[in-house]
């Protein structure tokens, strides 16, 4: 059994009377692709923000990459990558400048930045485009570049918040190839998604409803547990019970 890189115990976040995330307990193993599902407003983002060190939990315990989310947020930040549903790239900067900037703020040395840039550009097949402004790239490329930039500092864990929303199926498929390649290298992937077909690509899935984790297992076991034919059915079965409305 691989070691756990994310470990939470009764992790809770309250905003006044509202409990956004209620006693979340789960762990994610190194190299795992962990799907984090839930309707809008279910508490996914809150949970993710706590794990990224952006928000201090109200109670409970959690470690990320071996560091405590209360005390060592700086160390956590150094060991994780983050990709949001919005573009994390600067449109008025070129491809090369974007890579250099993100590598730069993670404190990579000039040589590392140079090597990494070349490797990345080669991997994505963007050799001819490095001097182009990101604005001029097609959406799919931006998405892939954005992922590559998020892992430019080789984090132990990468958090992705609905990374494929608004991308066509072919590009999504290619995107997942990148994710698999990263996971093969031992990187842990923590991903939220709206696409149920994508959830099948994950090693394990947790489904949140109204701030609580209602199901957590491999896609295969979940389907068996809920006697469903697809993840769609599993998800809608659980999501229907939700009392909160999405935002």
């Amino acid at each position: 059994m691989a070691e756990s890189v994310i470990k939470t115990e009764k992790l809770t976040k309250r905003f006044g009377d509202f409990i956004a995330a209620n006693e979340l307990t789960f762990d994610v193993k190194a190299g795992e692709i962990f799907g984090f599902l839930g309707a809008n407003g279910a508490g996914k983002t809150t949970a993710m923000r706590m794990l990224c060190g952006l928000s201090i939990p109200s109670s409970g315990k959690a470690t990320v990459a071996g560091f405590d989310v209360y005390k060592h947020t700086d160390e956590i930040k150094r060991n994780i990558g983050y990709m949001s549903q919005k573009f994390s790239l600067y449109e008025d900067l070129t491809v090369a400048e974007n890579i250099r900037f993100y590598a730069g703020i993670y404190g990579l040395s000039n040589k590392e930045i140079k090597d990494k840039s070349e490797e990345l550009v080669h991997q994505l097949g963007l050799e001819g485009e490095t001097k182009k402004l990101v604005r001029e790239l097609p959406l799919g490329w931006k998405q892939k570049l954005s992922f590559s930039v998020a892992i430019v500092h080789q984090p132990k864990i990468v958090f992705m918040d609905e990374p494929t929303s608004g991308v066509d199926p072919v590009t999504r498929r290619q995107f997942w190839d990148l994710i698999y390649a990263a996971a093969d290298k031992g990187m842990t992937i923590f991903v939220t998604t709206h696409y149920m077909d994508e959830s099948e690509y994950c090693n394990r899935i947790s489904i949140m409803v109204d701030g609580v984790i209602r199901a957590l297992d491999t896609p295969y076991n979940l389907k068996k547990q809920f006697s469903a034919n697809s993840m769609d059915e599993v998800f809608y079965g659980l999501a229907r019970e939700a009392k909160r409305t999405g935002d």
């Binding site: 930040k77 994780i80 990709m83 549903q85 573009f87 994390s88 958090f159």
Partner: peptide, 13 residues
């Protein structure tokens, strides 16, 4: 607006 602020906040910067 662009969402890059989030990325910056998650970074060690």
């Amino acid at each position: 607006e662009l969402g890059t602020m989030e990325i910056l906040l998650v970074s060690p910067f």
